[in-house]
Design a protein around this nucleic acid. Sequence first.
DNA 1: AGCACGCCGACT
DNA 2: GTCGGCGTGCTC
Length: 754
Amino acid sequence: MRVAEIYINQINKNMDRSFDYYIPDFLEPMEIGLRVVIPFGVKNSKIDGLVVGIKESSEYKRLKNIEGIIEDYPKLNDWQIKMCYWLQKSYHCLFMEAVNCFVPSNLHIKKKKENGRNTYYMANALHEVKYYKLSGKYFKTEDYLAQIKSNATKQREILSCLEEIPVSFKELKEKTTCTTANLNILIKKGLITESKEINIRNPYKDREYQYPVNTLNRHQQEAFDSFNSYEKPSTFLLHGVTGSGKTEVYLRYIEETIKRGKSCIYLVPEISLTSQIIGRIMGRFKENIGIIHSHLSDGEKIDQWNAIKNKSVRIVLGARSAIFAPMDDLGLIILDEEHENTFKSNNRPRYNTYEVAKKLQEFHECHIVLGSATPSVSSYYEALYGHVNLLELPERVKSIPMPEIHIIDMKEELYAGNKTVISRKLHNGILQNLKRGEQTILFLNKRGYSTFVFCRNCGYAVNCPNCEISMTYHHNIKQMACHYCGHKEHVPTICPKCNSDKIKYTGSGTQKLEMQLRKYYPQARILRMDTDSMQRKGAYEETIDLFQQGKADILLGTQMVTKGFDFKNVTLVGVILADSTLNIPDYKASERTFQLITQVAGRAGRGDKLGEVIVQTYEPNHYAITLSQAYDYKGFYDQEISYRKMMKYPPFSDIIYIGFTNEDEVQVSRDCLKYYDKLYKLVKEEEGEELLREMYQPTASPIKKINKKYRWYFIIKTNHLLQYNSILNKLSEEKEIMELHSTLIIDINPNNIL
DNA sequence: AGCACGCCGACT
DNA sequence: GTCGGCGTGCTC
Ligand SMILES: [Zn+2]
Ligand SMILES: [Zn+2]
């Protein structure tokens, strides 16, 4: 019998390797990439796995037999398995975490008898979730606790956490450190009960859309022709000012690629994946469009998979995760709003979508198109000096001039006696817009009401008990909330430290701004758009629709309002405080500020009327602000790239973040230092001085604790990413490193280092 | 993930 | 002494 190498579908670092199994004759011909059911462990419990290799014999002597193949399960191709190994090695994740990018992971496997043999199939339309609650035997938690021994800490933890309302296993695991074994004991004792519920998937409903073909202007035509002149797989950067008609160019690229018999992936930031863009693409192409985002259920994912595999879907529109769509004849990958940080994953695997796309080019003859009004300096640098072709759209489609940007020095407002967050110029602009019946967008990058609540008498600040960070006051729920762990608590009316009642609220967020606006402009109809007000499903699109239809005068909100919407009647845009992004301690702060101002400014004056933008700041002379005022992308790029070069920041280096988290403050520092030492020795042995100099000393994170877990980290600013990656992979296999108690996070070029 | 093995504190 | 929770190691 032949032998199969099988990875088991278990996310666990001890299981990040293959296991050998015999292939019984009735399962031949076995193929790499198939999903199988195998007996595992002492109990031979049936578990699913992925075949990654086939060989004639095994070193290991006591092999078990594969039980069966899971029918209809998406089979991974050779290129997909190669991508998984690459993801694992490049981003330091488990192999199965990489696999789960490509295929749905929560299999619901059913068994049936056929010709006297067990065969397996998926019942993924139904996804069962286990819920737990207190049995209802007693009234108070204390009574439950009295039933178990004092040293049963895990069980006590579970009981204290549970209520009479069912809680899913997943939620319970986030709050406690329980296992199914602990829960089963409590069930046996009759203290808690278990129930199962089925997640029902709701299929995506098609609507009728129309999006007529727009004729291309000169620059668009040039961008189109240039793209077409490349036969070999190439990469392009489409740099087009806001309103220059990038979408139309993308659609032409897609049309052309489909004509050549190839398929396309069109990626947008998750937040931009709205009915507007879906409507445009569905309205243009008569083909089926696959829509992929991270909120799809496993059943929906399988549906999309099959539709792509049998080629009834040739165009996939989606957020970051859609880069893993199983296109075998990929011809084009578009990354729209290329500069957005959502193209970098913050969960394992912590991949960068552009890098994944470049890797895909090794397996597919496909073009990559990056598009943005404010390209990331790394991409622009590549376009100037690397293998990326620069395509420019320097004019707006209808030659509408860019709105004029005014910079307001808020220090001068203070001197003039204006203590509000709205400058006199912005105030007059809003009043005038209200009078003329034109719309206003206000951007403030802080949600909540007040971001810092403290006692004026003794300096006591309301900090989260789980995190070392100040909590934000939320007026809608009248509670303090932590933006890192979600913890909520009551608002102090008297200081718990000194009993003073001089509690002060500072740091205005969107909620406070909304209240102030309602006070100043009682006649105005105001909409607020931030993660808090957009919780409800569909709220985001409803708000957009309301504003689009002119049913509100002012739209205020966080990042969300900067996205590429086409509101024709918006003639005034206000940036309440540009400094809030500028002062983030991160090398990308200037870039981010420039991008935000440019993006939000692009919302003004999209119709026939001229627009105006007012940027309020305490640093009116910062180059990110003055150059965005001048719409001088190139000027900004030049300044920023010389700063990056001087400081050896990306694109002149890669930053490897190596972080540890643990509930024990001492343990986490010990583990981090130990890892650092081990790495230091290994680098010294294998590489030498040059790489050693790229390692920075470990320290506690700027936010020392998040969600009860203390954090330590160090970074490596390197020009030898490949060498470091292989050393880090080698280190992860060492026993002493495997045994570290703290959770290890390795992030290559992370979005932030908090 | 689950399960066995073995250590050690609580309780008879 | 025994019972049982909980950390550790292993699963082809
Ligand atoms: Zn006080
Ligand atoms: Zn918190």
